[in-house]
Nucleic acid binder design. Structure first.
Length: 188
DNA sequence: TTCCTGACGATTG
DNA sequence: ACAATCGCCAGGA
């Protein structure tokens, strides 16, 4: 089965300085058309994860079924593949992704909302084009997530903020990205 | 197939 | 700065 086993790894607390050189994450890909099966290394942060596998080739993907029995759509695979290349320590926006994939921001949001491979597929690195924190795990963050009360109401968003903080990406008291475009990855 | 709903974004008043 | 509106398009019922 040419798929990646996403093994649970304890997340090491990363500092801003370390963020850019996180431990390489290895995955193996098997080419069915060519007998050239080889493994490639992808730079990904070590994060705890579900035990779901992330298939990388068409055959495995066509066979893939979620625990609930449903399949992952072509559009979803495209979105997941794309955000997999967002560097640690950076974020990008729904708008950018939709432009890159000739989709729409709302469709991208939908794919991320249903992301079964989180956090291996780093949907937490996607924020709103206004540079506000955006959504996570099905909830849309109010742009005021940092008041004591706001945090309690949005545990999920707080988690997204925490994960990004570990990767060296911070937000101000109103939930807006600190550092502006310096922190935004645009496909290059 | 048609209709409706969204982790969005850009425009407008 | 903010809220209302509309365009977007992928999925699901």
């Amino acid at each position: 089965m040419p798929a990646l086993r996403v093994t649970p790894i304890t997340a090491p607390a990363q500092s801003k300085a370390q963020a850019s050189k996180s431990k390489p994450y290895s995955r193996t890909t098997t080419s069915t058309t060519k007998s050239k099966s080889k493994s490639e290394t992808v730079s990904q942060p070590a994060l705890p994860d579900s035990t779901l596998t992330f298939p990388t080739d068409l055959i495995a993907r066509s066979r893939f079924k979620l625990p609930n029995g449903k399949a992952v759509t072509g559009h979803q695979w495209k979105v997941y593949d794309y955000i997999l290349s967002i560097p640690v320590g950076k974020v990008t926006t729904y708008g950018h992704i939709s432009t890159a994939l000739s989709s729409s921001p709302r469709a991208v949001g939908g794919a991320l909302r249903d992301n079964p491979f989180a956090p291996y597929i780093p949907c937490h690195r996607v924020i709103a084009s206004s540079l506000f924190i955006g959504g996570f795990q099905g909830e849309w963050g109010k742009e005021d997530v940092t008041t004591e009360k706001g945090r309690e109401e949005s545990q999920k968003l707080a988690k997204k903020l925490r994960v990004l903080e570990e990767e060296g990406v911070n937000f101000d008291s109103k939930g807006k990205l600190i550092g502006g475009l310096e922190k935004v990855w645009n496909g290059e």
